[in-house]
């Protein structure tokens, strides 16, 4: 189980990396944390001509606060996100999600940008980015683009990023003072990819729910906003009746993919259960009675 032959180029600057992506096009793969790419190489599921190692691009690492925006460099390791005070204070959703991301040795290497750019449908970071309304900054030799998370995730491992673009930065609006966030997922074992998962982010006053965004992952081909569920939720008091309405509406949002870990029916059921639970928790966190 040895990787196939490839060329390896260590990018020594962002410009160098972008130049390499221009030059090699679809023959190149970006090697960031490598925690998803390396297994596919070892298994020969992926046979790129060139690996462009961006790990030395230190400008792409780091977490900072820019006014009401938390700026996370794409090459920031999961472990640094997990341990960040800024994230804990301003992006509690991500802080809550991060312990679910694999295991310590993977978090020490894996990067938040890599996770978002790969767009595994069961991964936590794409869902969080969507729930928080993050902006993804991608860059090519011809310049930067800002892509709202709502437009970034196109499908199974497909995103709005072009082949010659590198995800360089994620900009998250800091969690508003009167907002709450809740992250929940179900995985067979700790650290596994989820079978079902929900992020909730929005405002709850007492039991009244406003501007709540519910993002579902692991059941579809990408993280998605439960538009109908949200429509049935916002402006309502959270109660059994609302819960029923929201979970019914959810059936129009989701079309779960069956896989080895569960049928579509089960995944729909689990997403409904999680919907109830995240909202119960959201109300509790907001100080209301669930």
């Amino acid at each position: 189980m040895k990787a196939p032959k490839f060329s390896y180029i260590r990018a020594d600057s962002l410009d160098h990396a972008l130049e390499l992506l221009d030059k090699h096009g679809e023959d190149a793969r970006i090697l960031a944390g490598g925690q998803s790419l390396m297994p596919t190489l070892n298994m020969r599921l992926s046979q790129p001509e060139v690996l462009v190692d961006i790990n030395r691009l230190n400008d792409l690492k780091g977490i900072s606060l820019d006014g009401d925006t938390v700026v996370i460099g794409a090459l920031t390791r999961h472990i640094d996100v997990m341990n960040s005070d800024i994230v804990a204070e301003h992006l509690p959703l991500i802080a809550e999600a991060m312990p679910h991301v694999a295991h310590v040795a993977i978090r020490n290497r894996g990067t938040i940008g890599g996770s978002i750019a790969l767009s595994d449908p069961a991964a936590e970071m794409p869902a969080c980015a969507l729930a928080l309304g993050a902006t993804l900054i991608v860059q090519s030799s011809s310049g930067k683009r800002e892509i709202p998370a709502e437009e970034f995730f196109h499908g199974l491992y497909e995103t709005a990023r072009a082949e010659n673009e590198l995800l360089v930065e994620i900009r998250y609006p800091s969690q508003k003072k009167d907002n709450v966030s809740v992250f929940m997922e179900l995985a067979r074992r700790h650290g596994d990819y989820a079978i079902a998962g929900v992020c909730a982010y929005g405002k709850v006053s007492g039991n009244m729910v406003e501007d709540m965004r519910l993002v579902y992952f692991a059941s579809e081909d990408r993280p998605i906003i439960g538009e109908n569920a949200v429509a049935a939720l916002n402006g309502k008091a959270w109660c059994d009746e609302t819960k029923d309405a929201v979970t019914s509406a959810l059936e129009n949002d989701l079309d779960p993919m069956a896989n080895l870990h569960g049928s579509a029916t089960m995944k729909m059921h689990l997403q409904k259960v999680l919907t109830g639970r995240v909202m119960d928790t959201a109300v509790t966190r907001a100080g209301g009675a669930s």
Partner: peptide, 23 residues
């Protein structure tokens, strides 16, 4: 050799990592 079992765990610059998931 695909990053699941942890038998290859080594320390790189102070952090434990999967040795099979790094060139």
């Amino acid at each position: 050799e695909h990053g699941v079992c942890g038998a290859c765990s080594v320390r790189v610059d102070g952090d434990v990592v999967r040795g099979c998931l790094m060139l």
